[in-house]
Design a protein around this nucleic acid. Structure first.
Length: 289
DNA sequence: GGGGGTTCCTGTACGC
DNA sequence: TGCGTACAGGAACCCC
């Protein structure tokens, strides 16, 4: 499931292939993949056809292609989204929702396929606004910077986290506080920090907040270096290849297996409609929870 | 106004 | 074998 490392792998693979390319043709195979597109701003196909792709950007789990028209094509992969690069005429990918025919001045013709089994992802054409000295789509403006962004303000994060009145995992998943972290890397960062997922944020010390931020950074960087986390066919890079980080997980998906630190079996609990994996010894449950 | 529960969606795994 | 059901979760949305 795409979190920051997976989206960045896709962005980095897409950028050299499509930067400078012109969008010749757009085909919508499933309009549900346009749920983020505001039709009042214009027709999706019409706003893209003929546009040149100038760059491929990312903030957190959102990605966007800046266009010569001044707009951006926003991409969110959701749970199962993929962006695949294909040779023209090569069909056969399942669950293709939107298909783009592009022409690159050096690389020639290319097909960009937006594939999404569960349709939690989507695409949209959106206006760009200036923020933090950069241009971002309006629908991405509320998303915080991610911890790998050099402009990320550690002190502000620590203060905002401790000011909240919620559990620490819920806060880590709050994309307006810090972006790019999803269920897998939240569990991993909390395991590395020896913090229980339901620890109240107003009872997290400044030192602990810095630790969990540092561990989140470390796990995101390591996963990025290994090409992201793949459990099945739901996450692949633009060439359809899986990442290797699943082999490096310490807590996520390891319920019943020994904690790599203390040997006690990892526990999985349902929390926020998803699984939370933690070591019951290393990550003590907060009192009264 | 912020916290937290619900909802969207489909392929896979599993039980009967 | 086949059917029904639970499960996976990012983020918008809504209610309190």
């Amino acid at each position: 499931m795409p979190e920051l490392p997976e989206v960045e792998v896709v962005r980095a693979g897409l950028a050299p292939a499509v930067t400078g390319a012109r969008i010749d043709h757009v085909e919508i195979l499933d309009a549900r993949s346009l749920k983020r597109h505001d039709a009042r701003r214009g027709d999706f196909v019409g706003m893209l056809t003929g546009a040149r792709i100038d760059s491929v950007e990312r903030r957190g789990k959102f990605m966007w292609l800046t266009l010569s028209t001044g707009d951006a094509l926003v991409v969110h992969l959701g749970m199962s989204g993929q962006v695949l690069l294909r040779e023209p005429g090569v069909d056969g990918d399942r669950h293709v929702r939107i298909r783009f025919d592009v022409t690159h001045p050096q690389h020639g013709d290319l097909v960009v396929a937006f594939v999404d089994q569960r349709i939690f992802g989507s695409m949209a054409v959106d206006a760009l606004i200036e923020q933090h000295g950069a241009l971002v789509p309006t629908q991405v403006a509320h998303i915080a910077l991610d911890p790998l962004d050099e402009r990320f303000d550690d002190d502000a994060f620590v203060a905002a986290l401790r000011h909240k009145r919620t559990g620490i995992k819920r806060a880590l998943l709050d994309q307006t506080l810090v972006s790019g972290i999803g269920n897998i890397y939240a569990d991993e960062a909390l395991w590395a920090s020896r913090l229980h997922y339901d620890r109240p944020t107003d009872r997290v010390s400044a030192a602990q907040a810095r630790t969990v931020l540092a561990e989140a950074r470390a796990v995101l960087r390591k996963a990025l270096a290994e090409g992201g986390t793949s459990f099945d066919e739901q996450y692949v890079n633009v060439n359809g290849q899986a990442g290797y980080f699943a082999h490096s997980l310490n807590a996520y998906g390891r319920q019943g297996q020994a904690c790599p630190r203390c040997g006690v079996p990892i526990v999985r609990e349902s929390f926020m409609n998803r699984g939370s994996h933690f070591c019951p010894v290393c990550q003590r449950r907060p009192r009264g929870r």
